[in-house]
Amino acid sequence: MNEIIFFGSNKYPKLFKNKTNSIKKPIQFNFENENENEKQIKQISSSNFSTIFLFKNGKAIEYLKENDLNQNPEKIQIEENIQKVTVCSQNEAILTIEGNLFAKGYDINSKNYNEFINISSLIEDTNDRIIQDIASGYNSIYLLTSNQNVYGFGSNQYGQLGFDSKKLQKTEKPILMMKNVSKIFSGNTSDSVFLLNSNQELFGCGYNTYGQLGLGESKKKDKPKKLTKIQNIPKGKIIDIQCGNSQSIMLIENENENENENENPKRKLYSCGYYGYNGLGKNENIDEFTEIK
């Protein structure tokens, strides 16, 4: 079997019954069912709402947040043919192998937040209902269709859906954010999102108080009301971006820097945002994507 190593908060949900609420040293996690321990894990997604373990056979186990810390978390078997899961603060979504998206949570169905809803069927354009990829922010979920269009739903408190937050606080139905998109980048503790188009142009929107969108000093405290093109992006191919609550990290690949043709492409890390706790050896605000030495 592949081992699951755990450390951090053991409250929501309490995955280890006889352990403290905070596990500081990494320990191995085992399922109660021995058969489940023998399955290969494909993905784990977790927040203070729930934790989902996705197996390579397309099935998943969800542990829901419990109201009483002395009680065991509610355990749910999800039998869909799943290819990806994502969990944020109050919402979660599962993407099936067929390209259908199901989601549940407070910002999706406030009347019954534990009931999965077929989000794909809510997209008005019937040609856009096959979902290729999903990502989540803190209270928002994003989906990339097979036609390379991105939709968002959930909270728009900080404009993280690309619309003026004064006019749209949240939406339970997916709304079109941008066309011609190749990748979505966000994080389940973040109210910011980046969208990369097929021309390697990067756009972002959402929470930017700490400069985590990399827009520069003049726009550091702005809350973009719509998707904004990120200027001064380092040269090279954007491989990945991870968004946190107050910072973002970008991985760039630049093939032109290789002196030896047999070497792998040169990869560098860049970051922006607030590093007040000496993160990455820094103790400052970084307003544009800057290389991490």
Rank of each mutant, 00 (worst) to 15 (best):
E3A: 15
E3Y: 15
I5D: 10
G8A: 09
S9H: 12
N10W: 00
K14Q: 13
L15H: 05
F16K: 02
T20P: 04
F29E: 02
N30I: 01
E32K: 14
N33Y: 03
E36M: 08
N37H: 05
E38P: 01
K39G: 04
I41G: 07
K42A: 14
I44L: 06
I44A: 03
S45L: 01
S46P: 07
S47P: 07
S50D: 15
S50T: 07
I52Y: 01
K56C: 15
K56I: 08
K59I: 07
A60S: 11
A60F: 08
E62W: 06
K65D: 09
L69Y: 12
L69P: 13
Q77H: 13
Q77V: 13
Q77S: 15
N81I: 05
I82H: 07
V87I: 09
C88M: 02
S89N: 11
Q90W: 12
E92W: 12
L95M: 09
L95F: 05
G99V: 10
N100V: 02
G105T: 10
G105H: 10
I108R: 00
N109D: 14
S110V: 10
S121A: 04
N127T: 14
D128T: 00
I131W: 00
Q132A: 13
Q132K: 14
T145S: 09
S146A: 12
N147H: 01
V150S: 02
Y151L: 00
Y151S: 02
G152C: 02
N156W: 01
Y158H: 07
G159A: 00
G162W: 01
F163Y: 14
D164N: 14
D164P: 03
S165M: 06
S165Q: 09
K166A: 12
K167C: 05
L168C: 06
L168Y: 09
K170R: 13
T171A: 04
E172L: 04
K173P: 01
P174K: 00
I175W: 01
L176R: 03
M177E: 06
K179F: 07
V181W: 06
K183I: 03
K183S: 11
I184M: 10
G187K: 08
N188D: 06
T189D: 10
S190P: 10
D191P: 02
S192C: 03
V193E: 01
E201C: 10
F203M: 02
F203A: 04
N208F: 05
T209K: 12
G211I: 00
G211T: 06
Q212R: 06
L215H: 11
L215D: 12
G216W: 05
E217Y: 12
K219R: 03
K220N: 09
D222C: 01
K225F: 08
K225V: 09
K226T: 11
L227C: 08
T228A: 04
I230H: 06
I233N: 03
P234Y: 06
I239M: 15
S248G: 02
I249T: 11
E255M: 04
E257N: 04
N260Y: 01
N260M: 02
E261A: 13
N262R: 13
E263I: 07
P265A: 03
K268Q: 15
K268T: 14
C272Q: 02
G273S: 06
G273A: 11
Y275W: 08
G279P: 11
G279I: 05
G279N: 04
G279E: 12
G281M: 10
N285W: 10
E288T: 15
E288D: 10
I292E: 12
